Simulated scan of single mutants.
Amino acid sequence: MYELVQVGEKTYYINCPAKIGIYKINDKDVCLIDSGNDKDAGRKINKLLNENEWSLKLIINTHSNGDHIGGNNFLQKKWNCEIISTPIENTFTSYPILEPSFLYGGYPCKELRNKFLMATASNTTGDVDNNLPKGLEYINLPGHFFQMIGIRTDDNIYFLGDCLFGENIINKYHLSFIYDVKEYLNTLDKVKNLKGKLFIPSHADTYEDITYLADININKVEDICCKICEFCEDNLIFEEILQRIFSFYNLKMDFNQYVLIGSTVRSFLSYLHDEGKIDIEFIDNKLIWKTIE
């Protein structure tokens, strides 16, 4: 784990739980694409930097989830490097309490104030519009999170963040976190049409052709939509829908999964409601979700 893999003249990735990109700005200076999930990840990245006699100048965060920004604070203290992303992702990175607060819908209790949902804050220094090194470009990949991006290097390598997940993860967990289902599907359609030498999702194998994996992710979203519509034929409140989702997919509920899957299911309900497939009604001071005949 944390093996360094070269995939282009200037492009590398670190094979770890959330893959990390490295791009050589010149013979000595490099930038990272994401930084792993915590201080320990930062230490392992720092060891690789020192072994290769590289100097870290910049971290580009694809988005602000804890497993992508967790090494920021440690590495920024070591290297005094810049940290950039899109405006909303920068805000969450600077104020990590926002993520568990957003997921929970109020002040998060102590069980939710953990490194998985709330990374250590780091000092964001700019946005990707004006601060990318020569040889890099970004693409907007919204859906999984607010303003997530991918990065393309001039080796024609794409780092795709969490816009899609590996087949093994989908088969085991079925639901991955999605903020905006419509934008998520639009992003997957966009990714299917990209042409590159290699595609590197954060939580999947690398692919020379990403179409197969994109289709698997699209199909799973469509299956979940059908299942929620089926459940809502019984006119349910949200907690009943969530319970049926966990039971149907054989998921184990804990507080982290309650807010992550719960937020995702709410996003599915919003999408299906906006698409005219389910309706809402308030009965006895309860919000009822029901399938439209």
Rank of each mutant, 00 (worst) to 15 (best):
L185M: 12
N186W: 04
T187S: 10
D189Q: 12
D189E: 08
K190Q: 15
K190W: 11
K190I: 10
K190H: 11
K190M: 13
V191R: 05
V191D: 08
K192T: 09
K192S: 11
K195H: 10
K195E: 04
K195P: 05
K197A: 14
K197Q: 12
K197E: 04
L198C: 02
L198N: 03
L198W: 13
L198Q: 01
F199A: 07
F199V: 04
I200W: 00
I200M: 00
P201F: 03
S202T: 11
S202Q: 07
H203L: 06
A204H: 04
D205R: 09
D205M: 09
Y207N: 11
Y207T: 06
Y207Q: 07
E208A: 10
E208Y: 05
D209K: 05
L213E: 00
L213G: 01
A214C: 08
D215P: 12
I216Y: 05
N217F: 13
N219V: 09
N219S: 15
K220Q: 15
K220L: 02
V221R: 00
V221C: 13
V221T: 05
V221E: 00
E222C: 07
D223Y: 11
D223H: 04
D223N: 08
D223A: 10
I224F: 03
C225E: 01
C226T: 13
C226S: 14
K227G: 03
I228R: 00
C229L: 11
E230I: 12
E230F: 13
E230A: 07
C232Y: 01
C232W: 00
E233L: 04
D234Y: 09
D234C: 11
N235Q: 15
N235F: 06
N235Y: 07
L236C: 08
L236I: 03
I237N: 11
F238I: 06
F238M: 02
E239K: 06
E239C: 12
I241A: 13
L242G: 05
Q243Y: 15
R244D: 01
S247E: 13
S247V: 11
S247F: 14
S247C: 12
F248S: 03
N250P: 06
L251R: 09
L251W: 02
K252L: 15
K252S: 11
N256M: 08
Q257A: 11
Y258I: 07
V259R: 01
V259Y: 05
I261G: 11
I261K: 08
G262E: 04
G262F: 01
T264V: 07
V265Y: 05
V265D: 00
